Computed example of a mutant assay.
Amino acid sequence: MLCISQLVELNNYIEEVESLGYTVYGISPSDPMSHSAVMDGEGLDFDLLTDVDVQFGSQLGFIDFDDEVIYRGYTAVNPETNQMVTEIDYLVGENALDVLKVLEDL
């Protein structure tokens, strides 16, 4: 789950992420029209997916129903080994170099 400023910052590193073999998607409970407006308005080079039923977010620990909280962060799956990591990181875009290191090590 990401905010717009973090999506824009992460977009600056899209080539580096893709060069490691990963595909980037942003996912949130927002509706597809909102996502389309953000992608077009901000010039994002990756797709935003809708999780209106919050199944994906809750399954990966980004949503806490008891505390009624949605956390920001990322999940990465190595396309060659299927190893997976999930991190809660409110500044995932600003911490893109740290994310790249995680992806390299995964």
Rank of each mutant, 00 (worst) to 15 (best):
L48T: 03
G61K: 08
D40N: 14
Y13P: 04
G61F: 02
G61E: 13
T50Q: 07
I4A: 08
F62H: 07
V69M: 15
V24Y: 09
D67A: 14
E16I: 03
G26E: 08
Q6Y: 04
S28L: 13
D51S: 06
F56N: 03
V17L: 07
A96W: 05
E80S: 09
V99N: 01
T75F: 00
L60H: 13
D98H: 09
F46A: 07
V52H: 11
T86C: 09
R72D: 06
S28V: 06
A76Q: 02
Y71V: 07
Y13G: 00
P29S: 13
C3M: 06
D64T: 02
S36A: 08
D64P: 03
E68S: 10
L97I: 09
L10M: 14
D89L: 02
I4K: 14
P32H: 02
L48C: 08
L103T: 02
L97M: 11
P32E: 07
I14D: 01
D53Y: 08
N11V: 01
E15Y: 10
E104Y: 00
I27E: 09
L97Q: 15
E18I: 00
I27H: 03
G21D: 02
Y74W: 13
E15V: 10
P32M: 03
V77D: 01
G43T: 12
Y74H: 04
Y22K: 10
F56C: 06
D98M: 05
Y74C: 01
C3F: 08
T23V: 11
N82I: 06
L100I: 14
R72G: 11
L44G: 05
Y25V: 00
S36C: 05
M1V: 11
D98I: 02
V8M: 08
H35F: 03
M39G: 07
I70F: 09
P79M: 11
E42R: 12
T50F: 04
E87H: 11
L60E: 13
Q59C: 10
D89K: 05
L100T: 01
V102T: 15
L91P: 05
M1I: 10
A76F: 03
D105P: 02
V8P: 03
M33R: 07
N11G: 04
Q55I: 13
N12S: 12
Q55N: 14
T23I: 10
T86S: 14
F56T: 14
L91G: 07
N11K: 01
T50Y: 07
D45R: 15
